[in-house]
Simulated assay, not measured.
Amino acid sequence: MERTRELGLALRATRSPGGLLVVGTPCDEPWHLTAHLSDEARLSGLPQLTPTLVRWAPPEDAPAHLRVGLSRIEEARRGETLFVVAEDKAPDPLLERLDDARRTGTTILALDGGDPELAGLAHDSLVLRSDGPLSFDGAQHLVSAAAGEPPGRAGLRGRLARLLDLVSGPRIAD
Rank of each mutant, 00 (worst) to 15 (best):
M1D: 13
E2K: 15
E2H: 15
T4F: 12
R5V: 15
E6M: 13
G8M: 07
L9H: 15
A10E: 14
R12A: 06
T14S: 15
R15T: 12
P17G: 06
L20W: 02
L20E: 04
V22K: 04
P26E: 05
C27L: 13
E29A: 14
E29V: 07
P30R: 02
P30D: 00
H32M: 11
H32V: 10
H32P: 00
T34L: 00
S38N: 08
D39Q: 13
E40K: 10
A41L: 08
A41H: 03
R42E: 12
S44W: 01
S44D: 02
G45F: 13
L46I: 13
L46W: 07
P47Q: 06
L49C: 03
P51M: 02
P51A: 01
T52W: 00
T52P: 03
V54R: 02
V54M: 04
R55E: 00
W56S: 03
E60P: 10
A62S: 05
A64C: 01
A64R: 13
H65F: 06
R67A: 01
V68P: 03
V68L: 01
L70K: 02
L70Y: 00
L70G: 03
S71E: 15
R72A: 07
R72M: 01
I73D: 00
E75A: 08
R78T: 07
R78C: 03
G79Q: 05
G79C: 01
E80S: 08
E80F: 00
F83W: 08
V84Q: 09
V85D: 05
V85I: 09
V85W: 07
A86N: 11
E87Q: 15
K89R: 15
K89Y: 10
K89F: 11
P91N: 12
D92W: 07
D92H: 10
D92K: 13
L94G: 09
L94E: 09
E96K: 14
R97T: 04
D99N: 14
D99F: 11
A101W: 12
A101T: 11
A101C: 12
R102V: 11
R103C: 10
T104D: 11
T104H: 14
G105M: 07
T106P: 00
T106W: 09
T107W: 08
I108M: 12
L109P: 11
L109G: 12
A110W: 12
L111E: 13
L111C: 09
G113E: 11
D115M: 14
D115H: 13
P116C: 10
L118K: 12
A119R: 14
A122Q: 08
A122Y: 13
H123K: 11
H123E: 15
D124N: 13
S125V: 05
L126V: 12
V127K: 04
L128P: 07
D131P: 06
D131H: 06
G132S: 15
G132T: 12
P133N: 10
P133C: 06
P133V: 09
L134H: 11
L134G: 06
S135W: 01
G138D: 07
G138W: 06
Q140S: 09
Q140R: 12
H141M: 13
H141Y: 09
L142R: 11
S144C: 00
A145I: 10
A147Q: 01
G148W: 05
E149H: 08
P151V: 07
G152A: 02
G152M: 06
L156G: 04
R157C: 07
G158I: 07
R159C: 04
L163T: 10
D165M: 06
I172K: 07
I172R: 14
A173P: 06
A173I: 08
